[in-house]
Design a protein around this nucleic acid. Structure first.
Lengths: 199, 199
DNA sequence: GTCTATACGAAGATAGAC
DNA sequence: GTCTATCTTCGTATAGAC
């Protein structure tokens, strides 16, 4: 059994954190070492393929963390609550960093032209998030195609809102997107029954 | 009167194009010179503050190009049509680059922690796009607050969809987001009148 | 496994000739 | 204005000692 807080995992976590703030190109090995406290000589021992490998694993890790949070929030089978929890997480990230940090998976996508493997990890992460949310909508009676569209909209809009929030240094974009997505979800899972004639 | 295709403007355009593909950190002066054909000795003549200044102007330029396209599409006062035109533009960018290019303004936001001025340009661009779209919705009878929320959702979702599309190398995210946004817009501008009793 | 030292290249920025 | 040459810094990656 392996302890999950060994040096290697700590480096991956540090890399994910720094990539979130500075991007892939803006994060050097020295930065990761300083942040993680890992010894310099152990980089190529743990990551033989160098930075490309570290970025890949950091992207995969970041994707999994979000997926786990999303899955937990979806336990209650209430898509609206999951949406709120998901958005609240991002708002915490933004506020906790004074709007300096965003999503590592987005960063890996944008700067992943030099390492296709990192971009593939990013693609897998987005697909997983969409799948989780679409599944919850389907369990609440939304048909497959619509559930997929809504899930893609939710993931895209939230990730986009995080970008807008960073640029404008305000949580307002995230709140507006949250409001619209919640109402849309509510409408989708609630069959449009004409108002009955009262009691 | 100044010709708009002089060396300086060409460098700005090249920078915007390259940033869209490789990000800010991934775009060097040498890249911009090779792409624009500008002479090496003229960099610090045209941009005394160096790369930071070039990135700022490229971000501003990219924001204006999109804003102009959006304003043109909104001429007809049909928000749905504008939405389609806006999305079609991004789909063309993605397909034309084999999903290697995205939005320079997003790139400037993510890597703009080293140059606050570039991020401010990005924030201004996003705000302008939102404002344009919200204005069109208001002219179609949507109340201010709702128009703002819908506009933020649209900008965030489309920018997010461009990121997803790059990662997954597919235009599908953009198409799904387009479908949902169009329906949402249609619902918002069409007052929910209960069906009248016939002709 | 981890260390120090270093190779090697590329980046941004500057200086001085033309 | 534009050129070439160069300075300085910093990045990844490697080599060899412990």
């Amino acid at each position: 059994m392996r302890v999950i807080t060994d040096a290697r995992d700590q480096m991956i976590r540090s890399a994910a954190t720094l990539i979130r703030e500075r991007g892939v190109e803006g994060t050097s090995f020295s930065d990761v070492l300083a942040h993680s406290g890992a010894p310099r000589g152990s980089i190529y021992h743990h990551f033989p393929r160098g930075k490309a490998q570290l970025v890949e694993e950091a992207t995969r890790y970041a994707g999994e963390v979000v997926a786990k949070g999303l899955a937990r929030a979806l336990d209650g089978d209430d898509p609206g609550a999951a949406l709120r929890a998901f958005i609240a997480t991002w708002e915490a990230v933004l506020r906790g960093s004074d709007f300096e940090a965003g999503c590592s998976v987005v960063a890996a996508t944008l700067e992943g032209d030099r390492s296709p493997a990192a971009r593939e990890q990013a693609a897998a992460a987005f697909a997983r998030w969409e799948e989780l949310y679409a599944g919850a909508l389907q369990r609440r009676g939304v048909v497959t195609d619509r559930a997929r569209s809504l899930a893609t909209l939710a993931v895209a809009a939230i990730e986009g809102a995080v970008v807008l929030a960073r640029a404008q240094r305000s949580a307002e974009p995230l709140r507006r997107v949250a409001r619209e997505l919640e109402e849309l979800t509510l409408t989708a899972v609630t069959p449009t029954t004409p108002p009955s004639g009262g009691p």
